[in-house]
Amino acid sequence: MNADRVPAKPSILAGGQAAPCWPRAWVAAGIVVGGIALGAASAWLVLKNPWSAQSVRAGAWKTSTVTGSVDADPYTRARVAVGGLLALSREETLYYVADRDDAGRPLRSGCGYRIEGTPPPARWWSITAYADDFFLFPNEAHRYSLNGSTAQLDAKGHFALLTGPNDPNPPGAATPTHWLPTPGDRGLMFTLRLYNPGPALVATPSVLVPPSIERVGACP
């Protein structure tokens, strides 16, 4: 055994001095600041994507049974406050949110999408496009949504909606599909609101026949 290669004790520096000992006050302050930073950061991580934790799914759409309710747990309440303040309880309105297409790809405003489906069983419904800051996309036409009043149904009773930065309808099209402009290239989400939903949906929101969300055309 070569005693010359045994490392020196970590508490002894080369010069033979004792290792620096942090004052207790500094250590305590570091623990407090570190704990607060860790707690705040973990809360931010939990709340930064407020709709990602919705528990009920129907296709690409997610919802919660306690949104807006006095029965909401603290996390649901905080998420709703961040991403959907002043929501109504599900007996009055069901909110379904999609931030991915049917293939599971995150939605981008720079891409084109076709949303198609049948009018859901509710007194009134709407589909609105929001940017990833939860606000509407500015556009000159002031077109932000498709709803039960403006949707044109085809012979099969289906509605269709196109979104993207540019109007994909050919100029002068006789029956253009409703287009919602989503300028720029940023995160995108769709919200499906059902006002006075049918009792079956209120009881089991997952039975919604979900509108399809299909990516169409080029995507940067």
């Binding site: 623990i31 407090v32 570190g34 704990g35 607060i36 860790l38 707690g39 705040a40 973990s42 809360a43 931010w44 939990v46 709340l47 603290p74 996390y75 905080a78």
Partner: peptide, 10 residues
């Protein structure tokens, strides 16, 4: 402290 801060923020 982290857990308490987390719950307080939420």
């Amino acid at each position: 402290i982290a857990a308490g801060t987390h719950l307080l923020v939420v």
